[in-house]
Each structure stands twice: as C-alpha cells, then as structure tokens.
Lab assay of single mutants.
Amino acid sequence: MDALKSAGRALIRSPSLAKQSWGGGGRHRKLPENWTDTRETLLEGMLFSLKYLGMTLVEQPKGEELSAAAIKRIVATAKASGKKLQKVTLKVSPRGIILTDNLTNQLIENVSIYRISYCTADKMHDKVFAYIAQSQHNQSLECHAFLCTKRKMAQAVTLTVAQAFKVAFEFWQVSKEEKEKRDKASQEGGDVLGARQDCTPPLKSLVATGNLLDLEETAKAPLSTVSANTTNMDEVPRPQALSGSSVVWELDDGLDEAFSRLAQSRTNPQVLDTGLTAQDMHYAQCLSPVDWDKPDSSGTEQDDLFSF
C-alpha cells in the first residue's frame, strides 16, 4: 500500500511530472533526481522514447528462454528487412502500455495491464526491452520488442512496467475491499429498513384510530445511509488515497477476473515476472533518469539497429 499512497501523494503535489519523457535525446524537461521519484509518476504514465523492432507469436506467457528466442527472431526479421526502425513513445501506467508513433502521434497499440504476463531486458541484446501480452483480438500470446538507447534504459522500462503492474494490483485490492464494505453496509441498511417496515402498523389501523404518522421519526431512520450505499452501487469504487486528485481509476471486468485468478494461483500475485536478476534490479533502481541518457562506457552510441 505504500507504493499506492506515495504515488497518489506525488501526483497530487505535481501532476505535471508524469508528462516528462525519457530517452528522447535531450528533449525532456528537468528530471527527478532518483528512481523513487520517477516511480511516483506512474499514475498518469511515464513516457519512454524507443524504437519498435516488431512482434512475434509465442506459445507460453512467460520465460527467459522463451523471450530470448522470440527477441532473436524479431531482431533477425528487422535486420533482414533493412528498413529504419519506427520511433515510438511507450506510455507506461497502472492501466497498461500505450504505444504511439512519434511522427504521426497515431495510436499503435493499447495493452491493458492485466494482459501483460512478462517483461524483460534481454541478456543477449542488452539494449532490447520486450514484453509478452495476450492479444486483445484473440487468445494468442505476442512478444513485442523495442530497441532502447542503452542497457540502462531497457532495464528502466522493464522495472517501470513491473512497478505499474504492482500498483494496478494494489488498486484492485483496495477497490475489492471498498466494494465488500459497501455491499455489507448496503445489506445491513436493508435489514434495518426491513425491520422498521415489519414493526410499522398498517396504514388502515392508523387511520381508524385517528393517529398521525410521525414524519420526524421517519426522517431519523437510516434511510439516507441505505440510499447512499445503493444509489451508486454500479459505480466502481476508487482508492481513497486518490481522493481529490485528477486521476480516475476504473476497474473493468477483465482486470477484476484476471487479478482474482492471480490472487488464487500465485504466492506473490502482485509481482510481474521479469528477466532481471536481483543485481540488475538493484543497479537500475539506483540510477537517476539522467543516467539513462548518458552514453555507455563501451563506446559511442549508434542510432541504428545494427549497432548491437
């Protein structure tokens, strides 16, 4: 819950932080000083300027060897085509990944977070970031790969997607708890209302004896509580940590079903599988986004697919 609360507080303090972009060759504004600060901008989305290598189908939802083989196929196909790589912007948030063309600003792909089953910074092609997700059109699994400016960037994108998945799962947990509370309150309110109706004398007997209905007592009954809980029953509950912020979080049926399955089948359902080692994760978390744009010590960066 700490990640969720800190993310909400950060967004309320400075929503404009989320509009910064990394990996864009110096076009961005001043960047936060450390990885923790940038992680807090996830709610509205972190932007990464990358190059799209392509996509291939895979048979399993996750796995280092599986993704490595898929990336190898994608890279080989991209090299064989001889075409310049498409420059894209990857927007990562707890909602998922939005992929747009840098030149036309046209939407290429919009992947809900619950469809993503794996992401990684490839070991062999260490400047490549990739994720595996279920197609929104059918049940097939797709591996999408992107060329980053350097290994640090690939690791940073991988960690960002993993963190977005974690925050999304926490949102789901909060929403589920809130819905259970509202359902319980609604049920209790309905029981109270039913009890009051059972003990209320029939209207005919009131008229016969000349008694008047006590409207004041009726007004004191917990009807307002019942209506408050039943009027918006169809509205999706939102985490309290975000009250007053500009973010509107809505959970669709697909996300609810997917996270429910994860909660039942996995020990740590909030953790998205990645190909990063503990050492890689520690190294990337210690980086400032400013470091992502620094040239690798191995030599001059080449803006070309064939540089790796």
Score class of each variant (00 low, 15 high):
Ala185Cys: 05
Leu147Cys: 12
Ser265Lys: 00
Ser21Pro: 09
Gln173Thr: 06
Gly194Asp: 00
Gln270Lys: 04
Ile74His: 12
Glu44Tyr: 08
Thr38Trp: 03
Leu242Cys: 05
Ser21Trp: 00
Leu107Gly: 04
Leu305Pro: 03
Gly190Thr: 06
Cys199Ile: 04
Leu255Val: 08
Thr149Phe: 08
Cys119Leu: 09
His125Tyr: 10
Leu42Arg: 15
Leu272Arg: 01
Leu31Glu: 05
Lys87Val: 09
Ala76Thr: 12
Cys286His: 06
Asp126Asn: 12
Leu4Asp: 02
Leu147Gln: 04
Leu42Lys: 13
Gln187His: 06
Thr160Gln: 01
Pro222Lys: 01
Ser49Thr: 11
Pro61Lys: 04
Lys79Glu: 06
Ala241Thr: 06
Pro289Phe: 05
Met55Arg: 13
Val161Phe: 09
Gln302His: 00
Thr218Arg: 10
Ala208Met: 06
Cys143Gln: 14
Leu305Thr: 03
Val247Met: 06
Glu170Ser: 07
Pro289Asn: 04
Thr274Asn: 04
Glu188Trp: 11
Ala3Pro: 09
Glu170Lys: 11
Phe169His: 01
Ile98Asn: 09
Gly82Gln: 11
Leu57Glu: 03
Thr100Arg: 09
Lys152Gly: 15
Arg9Met: 13
Thr56Pro: 07
Ile97Arg: 11
Gly54His: 13
Met46Phe: 09
Pro94Ala: 06
Ser260Gln: 14
Ile108Ser: 04
Val167Ser: 03
Leu31Asp: 03
Asn102Ser: 12
Ser288Gln: 05
Asn268Ile: 01
Leu223Pro: 07
Ser186Gly: 06
Met153Trp: 01
Asp253Tyr: 15
Leu85Trp: 01
Thr120Asp: 11
Thr277His: 06
Ser81His: 11
Val192Gly: 14
Val128Gln: 10
Leu223Arg: 13
Asp122Pro: 13
Asn34Trp: 13
Asp198Asn: 05
Leu223Asn: 15
Ser243Leu: 03
Thr230Gln: 00
Thr225Tyr: 15
Ser227Gln: 07
Leu50Ile: 07
Met153Asp: 07
Arg151Ser: 12
Asn110Tyr: 08
Leu90His: 13
Arg27Ala: 15
Ala133Thr: 14
Leu17Pro: 12
Cys148Trp: 00
Asn34Lys: 14
Leu305Asp: 08
Phe171Ala: 01
Asn105Met: 05
Gly82His: 10
Pro239Arg: 00
Gln106Phe: 09
Lys91Ala: 11
Glu188Gly: 06
Ile12Trp: 07
Asp183Phe: 09
Gln264Ala: 08
Leu223Val: 12
Leu47Asn: 03
Asp303Pro: 15
Val271Cys: 10
Lys87Pro: 13
Gln270Phe: 08
Leu141Asp: 15
Val174Lys: 00
Thr36Phe: 11
Asp256Gln: 04
Gln106Gly: 05
Asp296Ser: 08
Asp198Ser: 03
Pro239Ser: 04
Pro295Asn: 08
Asp122His: 12
Leu42Cys: 10
Trp35Phe: 13
Glu235Gly: 10
Arg73Val: 15
Leu57Asp: 09
Leu262Tyr: 08
Gly254Trp: 06
Asn138Glu: 13
Ser112Glu: 00
Val192Ala: 11
Ile116Cys: 06
Val157His: 00
Gly299Pro: 07
Thr231Ile: 11
Glu44Asn: 14
Val92Asp: 09
Thr56Val: 11
Phe306Gly: 00
Asp256Asn: 10
Ala221Phe: 07
Val58Glu: 10
Pro15Leu: 00
Leu4Met: 01
Ser307Gly: 10
Thr41Tyr: 11
Leu66Pro: 15
Glu235Trp: 13
Pro289Lys: 07
Leu212Phe: 03
Arg73Asn: 13
Pro15Ala: 00
Leu212Cys: 08
Thr89Ser: 03
Phe306Leu: 05
Val167Pro: 01
Lys152Phe: 11
Asp37Arg: 06
Gln136Gly: 14
Leu212Gly: 11
Glu178Pro: 05
Ala284Asn: 02
Thr100Gln: 08
Ile132Ser: 06
Ser112Met: 01
Lys87Tyr: 14
Phe165Lys: 01
Gly299Val: 02
Asp273Ile: 05
Leu223Phe: 08
Ala168Lys: 01
Arg182Leu: 06
Arg261Met: 12
Val290Gly: 02
Arg196Ala: 08
Val92Tyr: 06
Glu180Lys: 07
Ser93Trp: 13
His137Arg: 15
Tyr118Trp: 14
Phe259Thr: 01
Lys294Ala: 06
Leu262His: 05
Met46His: 09
Ser6Ile: 10
Ile98Cys: 03
Arg95Ile: 03
Pro239Thr: 14
Arg27Cys: 12
Gly23Thr: 15
Ser298Leu: 01
Tyr114Gly: 04
Phe169Met: 01
Ser93Glu: 15
Leu212Glu: 00
Leu215His: 05
Gly96Lys: 11
Arg238Glu: 02
Thr158Ala: 05
Ala185Val: 15
Ser288Asn: 10
Leu141Pro: 15
Glu250Leu: 11
Leu203Cys: 06
Asp37Leu: 12
Ile71Arg: 07
Gly275Ile: 07
Ala133Tyr: 14
Cys143Gly: 15
Asn229Pro: 02
Leu99His: 10
Phe129Ala: 09
Pro239Cys: 06
Lys51His: 10
Thr100Glu: 15
Leu17Gln: 13
Leu103Thr: 09
Gln155Gly: 02
Leu203Phe: 11
Cys148Thr: 08
Ser21Ile: 14
Arg13Leu: 13
Asp214Asn: 08
Glu170Phe: 02
Asn268Ser: 03
Thr225His: 09
Ala258Gly: 10
